[in-house]
Design a protein around this nucleic acid. Sequence first.
DNA 1: CCTGCCGGGGC
DNA 2: GCCCCGGCAGG
Length: 483
Amino acid sequence: MTSKRLLDESAGGVRVSSAAVQAGNVALTGHCIRYGGGVTAMDCGITSARRKGPMTVDGFDTKMLDKGSLQDPGKANPLGGNHFASGREKHHNKKKMGCAGEEDEREVPPAVVLKRGSPTHRQTLNGQRQENHVHLECVALLRRSQEPRCRPPSRVADPSPDELHASSHIPVPRNRNPSGHADKEVMAATVLSTLSTSPLVLNASSGASGSVPEAASRGWKESLSASYSSSTSGNWSWDASDQSVPSTPSPPLSNDVIKSFLLSSQGEDSIEEAESTHFPFEDPIPRKRKNSMKVMFKCLWKNCDKVLSTSSGIQRHIRTMHLGRNGDSDLSDGEEDFYYSEIEVNVDTLSEGLSNLTPTSPTTAGPPPVFPLASDVPRSEPAHMSPLSQSAPSTLCHIRTDHAYQGAVTHIRTVSNGEKRQPATHTPIGKTHATNMSTPKPTTGTRKPRGEAKKCRKVYGMEKKDLWCTACRWKKACQRFTD
DNA sequence: CCTGCCGGGGC
DNA sequence: GCCCCGGCAGG
C-alpha cells in the first residue's frame, strides 16, 4: 500500500498487479512519478483486463498522473477536466452497468460494490475487481472524509501542486485522487475492454507496453479524450458511434460504461437517484435502447425478484420491504441503491409479462406477443446480467421492403430499425418469439404461417408471372398480398 | 398435389 | 443486391 513500495516496484519495471492496485488507491501518484521507467509498472493497477488492452487504463492513470505530477498542474487541469466532464455525462448510465469498480471509486459504500457490480462486469474488468477491495477501503476513507461527491472534474484538474506532491510521497489518499484514479482506471479498463477492437486503443495499448511511455500516454490521452468526452475532438467518437449504432453489441456496454463513469463522478444518493430515475427516459445515451429496450430495476434482495420500472419505485420497495424504513420518506441514504440493479428488458417479449419478468422464468411462449409494429415501444433486450441476456436476434421484426414496382404493398411493416427480414407477422405464431427469446437459434421453427390472402401466383397465374411481386417471383414471402 | 416461402446459392 | 431454386410444410 505504500507508495514507496509501488515506486520501487515500478522503478524496477516490475508489474505489481494487485499490489499496484491496492497501492493504486493511495499511491497511484507514485506511479505517475515514474513516468519514464515505471510506466510499465503502472500497468499493474489493472490486472488481467489491463494486460490485454490494459495499457489504456494504465495509460490513463499514467497520463493523468504524469500530467499532474510531472508536468505543471496547470496543464493537468485541462486534461482532467475533459475526462471528468465526459465522465459526468456518463454517469447517467451508472447503475445499468453496475460496475463495481467504478462505483467503488465513487466512494460508494462497499455494499455498492457487492450489489451493483454485476458479475459480468466484474469479470470483464478484472482490474476493477481487484480494485474493489482496495476501493472499498478507499471508499471508506473517502466517506469518512466526506468529500464532495462530485468532484470528478476536479480530480484531475484538482491536482494542485500540493496534492500532487503529497500523493507522490504520501501513500494516503488525501483527497480523492486515489479514488479518482481508481475510477479512471476502471473507466479506462471498461472502455478498453469495450473498445478492445478499436485501433486507437490498440495502438495506445501497444505503445504503452512497447515501453514508449510517452507515446502510450499520448495514445491514451487521445483515446480517452475521445471516448470520454463528447466534446473533445476525437477522431473516433466512441460515444457517437455508440449511440448511433444500436445494433452493435458493444454499444450497450459502452453505454453502460459511460453510465457508470458518469455515475462514478457524481454525487451519491441524490445524483444516483436522479439518474436512475431519469436515465431510462431522458438520457440521450440510451438512444439505441429506445426502440427495443426498457430499463427495469430489479431488486437484488435475497429471494426477492421484484422488478419495477422506476428506480424510485425500486428504492421505495427496498426501503420499505427490506430495509424496514418508512416508505413515505423520500430521504434515501442511497443504501437502496445497493440492493437493486438495472436490467434491460426486451419489450417485444415482455409486452405482456413484464411483471413476471424473472431471469429464470421461461420466456413468454404461449400466445404470440402482438407485434408492436412501428410502435415506439422500446424493444427489449435483456440486461447483460440477466439470463435473458441471450437476446435473440430473431426478436427483431424484419421488414421486407417491396420493390419499386410493387406499389400495391400497403403494409410495409416497419418494425425494427431497419432490419429487413421476413416479418414475423402478427399472425399467431407463438413459437416464433418465444423460441427466439431463449434460444440463440431462433430461426428454427419460425416458419411463417401461410397467409390466407391470395398471392401473386394465384392472382396472376403463371402466365403473368411478370406481374408478380418480386418476392413471389423469387419464391419468397409475397409482399404484395400480405395477410 | 398445390402453394407459400425459407434457406441457400450463383452472379 | 438481385435473382433462382431446392425443398419443407400447410392445406
